[in-house]
């Protein structure tokens, strides 16, 4: 038992290291074309920035949105956007797994001594995706300056844990979506609905949406743990479902459960892989 756990841990660490050197190779090769990298990164930053400008314009007409002030909405936006940005930075090219499964190029990854998950995730690692993290971080910092909240140690810790767990939960959705493609070849659309759709949803206060939708987001797809539930606690507000208070602190645990599920699905998916005839 102990031996098995030790071996798992060793494989995990080796996978992380391999991710590091594969991603590093991609970074070095993209930095070789510095101007094109700068253009891409700036473009990325601009488009995501315009995204938030839309929300600010909305607030030029109304005082509050679902009872939330601009600073509070910015806090929701910043946390969800940063968490998503982190997942997107590290696993954003993961949906290419579908192509690899369909055209059989996954074969070449299976004969190498590096976990396939790490190889797929690190493939074409692009630093320009930092743009989204930077924009989310900027909005978050701006909201922190405007929010009228006393920053106790607990609140700081909760916010940090929220960002990390949120990134992990989004990442798990990426991996789950990828694993699903071993069985259903067109699952990437569904997964995009969860991740890209999910992050847009989480940028707004939960009070805006129908109760059923909120419930679905909490229990079916645990995206509400990315920021809604813990953010409401930080902002000192009640959640619209009236869930017990400890739920707001459950994000890290939910993230761990997501990891276990995603890992399991991935391994079963790999076993179901059948390559292609030539």
């Amino acid at each position: 038992m102990v031996e098995a756990i030790r071996r798992r841990a060793a494989v995990f660490l080796w996978g992380v290291r391999a991710y590091g050197f594969i991603a590093g190779m991609w970074v070095r090769s993209t930095l070789a074309y510095r101007t094109s990298f700068l253009i891409m990164a700036t473009g990325n930053l601009l488009t995501t920035f315009l995204d938030f400008v839309g929300i600010m314009i909305m607030f030029s007409h109304v005082e509050t949105l679902g009872g939330f002030t601009l600073a509070e909405v910015a806090f929701l936006y910043g946390t969800s956007s940063t968490a998503f940005g982190l997942a997107d930075l590290f696993l954003g090219t993961f949906d290419r797994i579908g192509t690899r499964i369909r055209d059989g190029t996954l074969d070449t990854l299976l004969v190498r001594p590096v976990p396939v998950l790490a190889q797929v995730a690190a493939d074409r690692f692009a630093l320009r995706r930092l743009g989204r993290v930077a924009q989310g971080g900027a909005v978050l910092v701006w909201s922190l300056l405007r929010l009228d909240i006393e920053w106790t140690a607990g609140r700081v810790l909760l916010t940090a844990a929220m960002l990390v767990s949120g990134g992990v939960i989004f990442g798990c959705v990426f991996v789950l979506g990828g694993a699903f493609q071993f069985w259903a070849q067109d699952a990437s659309e569904v997964q995009n609905a969860f991740t890209y759709g999910g992050t847009t949803l989480l940028q707004y206060p939960p009070t805006l949406f129908a109760r059923e939708l909120v419930r679905g987001v909490v229990f079916v797809v645990p995206l509400a743990f990315v920021n809604w539930l813990p953010a409401l606690r930080v902002l000192g507000r009640e959640d619209p479902l009236g869930l017990p208070g400890w739920v707001d602190l459950a994000s890290p645990a939910v993230a761990l459960v997501c990891c276990a599920l995603a890992g399991l699905a991935w391994r079963r998916g790999l076993r179901a892989y059948r390559s292609t005839g030539s």
Binding site: A18, F21, I22, M25, D107, T108, V111, R112, R124, S278
Partner: peptide, 22 residues
């Protein structure tokens, strides 16, 4: 029919990756 090398990287970089993987 299919290559194990990285399409967009110079050949030498592919070999370097191989070295670290193995």
């Amino acid at each position: 029919q299919r290559t194990t090398l990285w399409w967009d990287l110079p050949l030498r970089d592919s070999y370097r990756l191989m070295r670290r993987m193995y």
